[in-house]
Design a binder for these strands. Structure first.
Length: 492
RNA sequence: GCGGGCGUAGCUCAGUGGUAGAGCGUCACGUUGCCAACGUGAAUGUCGUGAGUUCAAAUCUCAUCGCCCGCUCCA
């Protein structure tokens, strides 16, 4: 069995082989930001493609979308993010521990909401005025807190080169809202019928209070999100469907089952919009071997579409209040909201309704990290340590490496030809330098599933050896059957 | 944000006040016919950054940036 991998081992492998670098390293680095190197960009792109293939291409009921990161500020007003995507935190003067104000307990009552949803800043401020009776959960000191301070979890930027009439925009904290905002567009142009989903992969930004563990939690990150729209009443069925589908996606791509599990959110842990939520968790080698979320699958009900209908009814106030979101109150919901502009007309049942939404929301970066960690292995071969990444072929940055056994006797030329031919079909790598054993090991550490070697026999019978990464076994394959052989083995 | 640890070559690390090192890796040439072989040669450092102390700082002090671990936090 593989030994316990430490995060540090993964970090140095990533640097050494060009998977992941610290951002802005030549300037001392920028906290929690990372860059993907030549191998990393292939890996990450393969993770994306595998998700897209499973969630969009292989299904008849999901279409894709790619929204802009910057959106109309009213989107975030309607979704609740501008009001609610902020925490009030107070710091204990005694021990300097910061705690969310709504998690503080009264000295006497000993009661606090364990896992409360975030509430509007104004309301929270009013509610949190009096901390004199609150107890610091860390040191037990009563009432020694700083003024509650709001943490803005959305990044702000300005649109418009002219400072005077530029407007504040937010970098999206999730890709989901772009999908809801385009729900009508997709309905009107693509002949989709409920149940159907809209999928999107893209960057999101959250000004997290704390980042964590390499690329696991970063402030800039990539999400793969699906909003699956279904008729109310069928939502539980689709929730179960996507739970299963998403869990299997990870195991199909090689994550070991024993490192993967579901964690169901308790009722008091649910976000304000969610009826149910479950996390797919992976046992990462940081923390104390902690289970950490890879993906959340939530039943978002009809919350978002209804909120955007309210937002659309509020647009006039946006102009009346000089584009100042904090002055705007979201319009009440229309009485006949079920037939509002974001409703769906079911032709068979002849009725209109706001669909329910099942949302599997995965982190591409943390998935890539999980695949890296899970694939990492060290083993002993003839007294030497062999490091390798046992990537699923679909995820391997390089699929096939091509070598001449030695660089003479015309072998490099033949190998070059094979390489030039194969690279039209797979990501390939050519190498003729040094001993062939060393080249094999280098590819092992990059996770390349197959190495082809042109040797003396090649000129006689047109066969090459195909060496498999995990077993190190070799078979001779005729060059004219190489492509089909590799295609079958790589499942491509 | 708090506490602890750390930051020296691409990686792992040695160097505790006196001209910057090792192993691995990388590159070149030779050799080599299947698993990190061998020989010869070579390149590579803002000692994280900035200030201070000192005749002299990788080394001592302060600040700052970054990483790891533990808290806290994570709609």
């Amino acid at each position: 069995m593989a030994k316990i991998t430490k995060l540090d081992d993964i970090v140095s492998l990533c640097k050494r082989r060009g998977f992941i670098f610290q951002s802005s390293e030549i300037y001392g680095g920028l906290a929690s930001c990372y860059d993907y190197g030549p191998l990393g960009v292939e890996l990450k792109s393969n993770v994306r493609s595998a998700w897209w293939k499973a969630v969009v291409k292989m299904r008849d009921d999901v279409v894709g979308l790619d929204c802009s990161i910057l959106m109309h500020p009213m989107v975030w007003k309607a979704s609740g993010h501008t009001d609610q995507f902020a925490d009030l935190v107070a710091e204990c003067k005694k021990c300097n521990t910061r705690t969310r104000v709504d998690h503080l307990k009264e000295k006497v009552a000993e009661q606090a909401e364990e896992h409360t949803e975030h509430i509007a800043i104004d309301a929270a401020l009013a509610k949190a005025q009096d901390l004199s009776n609150k107890v610091c959960p860390n040191c037990g000191t009563v009432g020694q807190f700083t003024e509650p301070m709001p943490f803005k979890l959305m990044f702000e930027t300005r649109m418009g080169a002219n400072v005077d009439d530029s407007m504040t925009l937010y970098l999206r904290p999730e890709t989901a809202q772009g999908i809801f905002a385009n729900f009508r567009n997709v309905l009107d142009t693509t002949r989709v019928k409920i149940p159907f989903g809209i999928a999107q992969i893209g960057k999101s930004f959250r000004n997290e209070v704390t980042t964590k563990a390499f690329i696991f939690r970063t402030r800039e990150f990539e999400q793969a999100e699906l909003e699956f729209f279904c008729e109310p009443g069928t939502d539980d069925h689709w929730y179960e469907h996507w739970k299963e589908a998403r869990f299997n996606w990870y195991t199909d791509l090689g994550l070991k089952k024993e490192n993967l599990r579901f964690r169901v959110h308790d009722a008091d842990e649910l976000a304000h919009y969610a009826k149910a939520c479950v996390d797919v968790e992976y046992r990462f080698p940081f923390g104390s071997g902690d289970w950490q979320e890879l993906e959340g699958i939530a039943n978002r009900t009809d919350f978002d579409l209804r909120q955007h209908q309210r937002g659309m009814r509020t647009l006039n106030k946006w102009f009346e209040n000089d584009r100042n979101l904090t002055k705007i109150e979201l319009a009440e919901e229309a009485e006949n909201y079920q037939s509002g502009p974001l409703s769906y007309f079911d032709d068979e049942q002849k009725k209109r309704y706001i669909p329910y939404v099942i949302e599997p929301s995965a982190g591409i970066d943390r998935s890539a990290l999980a695949f890296l960690v899970d694939a990492y292995d060290e083993e002993e071969v003839r007294g030497e340590k062999r490091n390798l990444l046992r990537f699923h072929p679909a995820l391997a940055p390089v699929k096939v490496a091509v070598f001449p056994l030695v660089k003479k006797d015309g072998m490099p030329e033949i190998a070059q030809n094979i390489y030039n031919d194969l690279k039209k079909y797979f990501t390939c790598f050519y190498d003729q330098k040094g001993a062939v054993g060393r080249r094999y090991r280098r590819q092992d550490e990059a996770g390349t599933p197959f190495c082809l070697t042109v040797d003396g026999q090649t000129k006689e019978d047109n066969t090459v050896t195909v060496r498999e990464r995990d077993s190190m076994e070799q078979v001779r394959i005729s060059t004219d059957q190489l492509l089909s052989h590799l295609r079958e083995k790589l499942d491509m």
